[in-house]
């Protein structure tokens, strides 16, 4: 019969648990930093939006159409930041251990920003005759949307292809508690995912590249990518 020093096993276990707990604690501290980061971004975006609104009203009310390129540029920069934040927010929310509620509130805030930008983009297009198309992309992160990954891939590709001439707004249907999203989904009877709303026209299920191209190209006068 050999001897076993149980204490040694116990100390090793405690130390291992300690290292893990330390890792988890640091993770939680960083999670609160992430919440703070997204909150700051949301605040920045609100300011940017108000600035854009002012630019729009300035052009509209004082007939300053020569300032349209400035508005177009600002709109694109803001939407790019908005999309980056959306991707980060989605990932942070997936990783979140204790701040899920905070991230979900921020996501609602983000959806509102998106819808505001969507409306502003449509109005700016009319005012300044911008050559651009907008797509509202309704998706679900549930398992009931096996094609959502593919749809997102096609939309990313088209965004890369058309750049600032195409504005994509990705809306997660799981946040339909946000009344503005609920309103939109009811208005357009969005029940299946993915669904695309391209300038008021609805496409249910996976919309292929050619289908989307045909639709958005109606809104461009002379785009090489449409031929």
């Amino acid at each position: 019969m050999r001897n076993i020093k149980k204490k040694r096993y116990l100390i090793a276990f405690i130390l291992t648990v300690f290292i893990f707990v330390f890792g988890i604690m640091v993770g939680l501290v960083m999670e609160s930093q992430r919440v703070q980061f997204v909150q700051d971004k949301a605040y920045e975006q609100k300011l940017d939006y108000r600035s854009l609104q002012f630019q729009y009203q300035f052009i509209d009310q004082l007939s300053q159409e020569n300032n349209c390129p400035v508005l177009a540029n600002a709109l694109n920069v803001n939407l790019e930041t908005l999309e980056d934040t959306r991707i980060r927010l989605t990932n942070y929310n997936l990783d979140a251990k204790i701040s899920k509620d905070d991230f979900e509130m921020l996501y609602r805030d983000y959806i509102l920003s998106q819808l505001n930008y969507w409306l502003l983009a449509k109005k700016a297009r009319e005012l300044c005759n911008f050559e651009l198309a907008t797509i509202l992309y309704f998706f679900s992160t549930d398992k009931d949307c096996p094609d959502c990954g593919e749809q997102a891939f096609i939309l990313t590709y088209l965004k890369n292809l058309f750049g600032d001439k195409l504005l994509n707004f990705a809306l997660n249907s799981q946040f339909r508690d946000e009344k503005s999203l609920e309103l939109l989904m009811e208005t357009y009877s969005i029940n299946v995912f993915p669904t695309l709303l391209i300038e008021g026209r609805k496409f249910e299920g996976l919309a292929e590249k050619q289908t989307i191209l045909r639709e958005i190209c109606k809104h461009y006068k002379d785009m090489e990518e449409c031929y």
Binding site: F20, F22, G23, L28, M30
Partner: peptide, 10 residues
């Protein structure tokens, strides 16, 4: 902040 700090520390 995009890094997974819990895993990174371990």
């Amino acid at each position: 902040l995009d890094l997974n700090f819990a895993n990174l520390i371990v």
